[in-house]
């Protein structure tokens, strides 16, 4: 498995305009390849836009659709991780991420945690995914997470238990909290963006993996998406942070050797005891279901 240059494509998708967004994927993938990237990570729902509401069934496509064929074609330029509304058998729709490489669809992750509170209304429009699986690629073992999946500790842990080398996170994170409460280097940032940075640092450090997180920019119905896409190395080092609010293509080296060194220095993964955790979780859940109220 070789080191690879990866790109974070921090762009603003057009809302509910798949054709325009496919063209943007062609353009950004080509730009990334020109900059030496072999893997391009796009944000959540990059092919459709985020605030779809009742337009989900109008823009969703299936894994064997012409739209997916177009994405396969794009992946001949560079491997891509994209976000889209997936139409699945049984009339279900998922907020999905797909990894494509060399004209092949390698993996699909369906968002497992659908935020439905405040601004968010995802369970109204999407069904939750049921799997958190890693996939082997020429860049190593890769896990995909979509936005809120990353805020919960479980999905990242399950990926780590599969020894992932690379966690790709696709986000459409709206900026919340402009009250200047941040201190030090978090001054001038949204509260929500500073929280995501902490998570990326912790997962990379704890699981000795690379974390590539692409968050979109742009505005939909007055909601501004933050950007500030980030890559973390396996020591938790921030390798790159794209600017807030503006479109940006960030290219970063995902170094295999750095992972080996980090895991030798801090052998969290080899210490990890998933069977113990599972046993205890089962006991806790059994206790919980035994409670009368």
């Amino acid at each position: 498995m070789a080191s690879v240059n990866a790109a974070l494509a921090q762009f603003a998708p057009r809302l509910a305009d798949v054709e325009a967004n496919l063209a943007l994927h062609v353009e950004w993938t080509q730009r990334a390849a020109d900059d030496g990237a072999e893997l391009v990570v796009f944000p959540e729902l990059s092919v459709t836009g985020y605030l779809l509401m009742e337009a989900v069934p109008e823009v969703a496509f299936a894994l064997d659709s012409p739209e997916m064929e177009r994405l396969r074609e794009i992946s001949k330029t560079a491997a891509i991780v994209v976000g889209f509304a997936e139409e699945a058998p049984g009339g279900r729709f998922f907020n999905s991420a797909a990894l494509l490489d060399g004209g092949e669809l390698l993996h699909v992750h369906r968002k497992v945690f659908l935020p439905t509170h405040g601004f968010f209304d995802e369970t109204r429009h999407f069904a939750p995914g049921e799997r958190i699986r890693a996939v082997d690629t020429r860049f190593g073992r890769v896990g995909l997470l979509v936005c809120r999946d990353f805020w919960h500790l479980g999905p990242a842990y399950v990926l780590a238990a599969q020894d992932v080398d690379l966690m790709c996170v696709l986000s459409a994170s709206p900026g919340r909290g402009v009250e200047g409460g941040g201190s030090g280097e978090d001054r001038g940032r949204f509260d929500s963006a500073a929280s995501v940075s902490l998570l990326g640092d912790v997962y990379a450090r704890s699981f000795g993996c690379h974390v590539l997180h692409t968050n979109r920019v742009g505005v939909e119905d007055g909601v501004t998406f933050v950007g500030a896409s980030e890559a973390f190395g396996p020591d938790g080092d921030l390798l790159v942070r794209a600017p807030d609010l503006d479109e940006h293509l960030a290219v970063v080296e995902v170094d295999t050797g750095a992972r080996r060194a980090a895991r030798l220095r801090m052998p969290f993964l080899s210490e990890e005891r998933p069977h113990l955790i599972l046993r205890e979780l089962r006991r806790v859940l059994a206790d919980r279901s035994a409670a009368r109220y």
């Binding site: 603003a12 900026g175 402009v178 009250e179 200047g180 409460g181 941040g182 001054r187 001038g188 940032r189 949204f190 742009g218 505005v219 007055g222 501004t224 807030d244 609010l245």
Partner: peptide, 21 residues
């Protein structure tokens, strides 16, 4: 009265909001 506003960030967001919308 309320937690202080990050006026620079708020300005960037609101100018971007007006322009993009």
């Amino acid at each position: 009265i309320v937690p202080p506003l990050d006026t620079e960030l708020a300005t960037r967001v609101l100018v971007g909001f007006l322009r993009q919308e």
